[in-house]
Amino acid sequence: MKGVNKTMINVGALTAKSKRLWDTSSMFIIFIILFIMLSLFVPYFLTVRNMIGLGLSVSMVGMVACTMLFCLASGDFDLSVENIVAFSGVTAAAVINSTGNVTLGIIIGMIAGGMIGLFNGLIIAKAGINALITTLAMSQIVRGLAFIVSGGQAQSIGNAGFFGLGNGLFLGVPNPIWITAICFVIFTVLIKSTTYGKNTLAIGGNQEAARLAGIHVDRIKIIIFTMQGFMAGFAGVVLASRMTSGQPNTSQGFSLDVISACVLGGVSLSGGVAPIMGAIVGVLIMGTVQNAMNLMNIPTFYQYIVRGAILLMAVMIDQFKQSNKKA
């Protein structure tokens, strides 16, 4: 009798535990299952070479997802990142080609991105213009600037010293993967254990309440967008290094890829909730599916449909969980 009771309690505790696990990390579990399935059934998926390729392919989205997370956490969007990537890439290329100084090129490329972000932030915080409109308009302007700086042509970079940033290896792993990992560590600390992170979440949760609690809402918004610009600028420079050229046409649709990855990981579009582990998993799921589809030779046209369907499904699962919690 006693033994039976005990096991029943254990089972009860176990289901409660697994339910909580599902609530907090459903996307992570899905990712693990997906990963195991793909390893078993897709040839060449679980090889060192493919894993490194996968890592490289998600590194850009991963980097920018770190700052996009803050943007979304505060209840805003940034649609201009894809164009900042292109603009800072061609800017870095132009500076390196004209001065021959690689460090200067990298720094100016990043600053170019940061300045655009600062503009976004100033307009959104001080003029009170909706972030969607502001960054949409800014994305057009920045794409134009990218074409002007490059003269509409891809700018090949002559200085091979620059290529190490994007193509070099450290302990056998390409630099961009390291950079992305470091970014995730830094931004995890920022969102979880700094006042900046907490204030960002408070603004996303209720801007007016945050303002009346003495939080400098404008200042934080400006910082969020400036950091976003810097990060996109940095990603642009890394990309230019990988491609050994600055390309004004690059990364179309990249902004929405980043936002999709965050949302896939459970980041709320209405702000106030920003699980950074979720964002990482979101980035990984998107990249893994893409990678597997390439291995399976699924034509690009169909890949779009699959990616869209995954995003919709993820959001619906999340919605379902939310409504379950309320009842």
Binding site: T194, A202, A210, G214, I215
Partner: peptide, 28 residues
Amino acid sequence: EGIIPIRSVEENINLSARRKHVKGKFFL
């Protein structure tokens, strides 16, 4: 104007005063 609905009781209490209790300028 008062509460941050989707954050915890703890975070809502400390929303304003935490700025005076940080380590190294801005770590919680």
